[in-house]
Design a protein around this nucleic acid. Sequence first.
DNA 1: AATCTATTCTGATAAATGTCATTGTTTCAA
DNA 2: TTGAAACAATGACATTTATCAGAATAGATT
Lengths: 229, 229
Amino acid sequence: MESKCENCIVRQFNSLRALSKEELKKVSDSKISKKIKKGDSLFVEGQKLDGVYCVREGVSKLSKLSSNGKEQIVKLTNKGEVMGQRSVVAEDFTNLSATAINDMEVCFIPKEIISNTLNTNPNFSLEVLRHMAHDLKEADDVIVNMSQKTVKQRLAEAFVYLKKNYGEDEYGFLLLTLSRDDYANIVGAATESLIRMISEFKKKGLIKTSGKKIGVVEEQTLQELADGF
Amino acid sequence: MESKCENCIVRQFNSLRALSKEELKKVSDSKISKKIKKGDSLFVEGQKLDGVYCVREGVSKLSKLSSNGKEQIVKLTNKGEVMGQRSVVAEDFTNLSATAINDMEVCFIPKEIISNTLNTNPNFSLEVLRHMAHDLKEADDVIVNMSQKTVKQRLAEAFVYLKKNYGEDEYGFLLLTLSRDDYANIVGAATESLIRMISEFKKKGLIKTSGKKIGVVEEQTLQELADGF
DNA sequence: AATCTATTCTGATAAATGTCATTGTTTCAA
DNA sequence: TTGAAACAATGACATTTATCAGAATAGATT
């Protein structure tokens, strides 16, 4: 049974909250709910998107392949985010691939509805604009981090970020479990280098591990490390 | 004597082309033309902007200081670009500083006009949205380059970019002359490392130099280098 | 033209990070 | 439950890049 957008809390967090009742109804009627299994991809770099994806549940990574074949993760999506907006707005191919990090529930919204609403509801345009402005600012920050911080600093920052944004379980392990490979692709380092750094952090008592799971022990120290002492 | 936006060719290249005659007149009447000397800054990171800047002439660098005190150049602006849009749209402090690389002529447009027009003219919003979408895509590309390419590759890419976007003089030297320091801050490397790389490129005959001026000699080879052979 | 100052350049060395090879450990499905 | 496949960890070494110190040069200024 398909649920309605009108009742979806997730909407509060994204640009769809600027829609009128009628517009929302249209979206609700034409949307398609999908379940995406961990590891499956929602879309792939270079593809033409027919719409956007609204994330109800689960986390995905937005990544891009570099010419040397390595993957770089540009962003992790949060519950409530809308993916593919950039591509639909610019009527452009996606520049990123989206892959589910855990099982996801998303709603696909056809692009016609989005572009129609963009043309007629200035509030919606503005809302999308604000979100994109926010993404752009974050992207600028990532650029600076990538070029000016060491792998160690970026990793420390990543742990703090993951804890803040996705929380931890009752034993203090991060709820979002990433492979070492994913970590490497987030901080932009070789997997082996990254694993070594994790070992070092563990040895120093900043984090704890249990299999793939990682827990933040000394958040404060990690933050200081990320900021360069 | 102030010229009018209506007759300004630069407008064709930016989001202002979506304005109606009346809207354009309002902009024209309230804009303030400014001359910025090479090296002077238009605005500084963390500042609240009261409007946007439309570039009529000259080039500026958009940069950000990292916690270690180093500057990272995130983007060079082209003639016709509008700066400060992100900040005005998001009603946020600027995350970037803008500094003139050569003498500039810009028009300052108060933010009230921009936000009013955003609220009433969906075409304008869409146009701004498209530009921001474009910037976001470019930022993603920069992130990938920063983390996956070597300094050598990024520098090769920078030369090709500068030639394509700003052209060269009759002797084959880049019209946009940057200091070695600026180059270092674009590719994200130590100035000394960068200078060494320039020497290497020169020795290999890929570029030529004359004082601060640099000329692209083997564009094709540089491009291949940037792409990783 | 001589001087000054900022910038560019070079060398020596250290630190950070990547690569390749190999082994140990989980995970998951048959 | 067990064994294959995927993942994680470590060692040895190569490469890239940063840092510090100092010399050379260009460009502005008198």
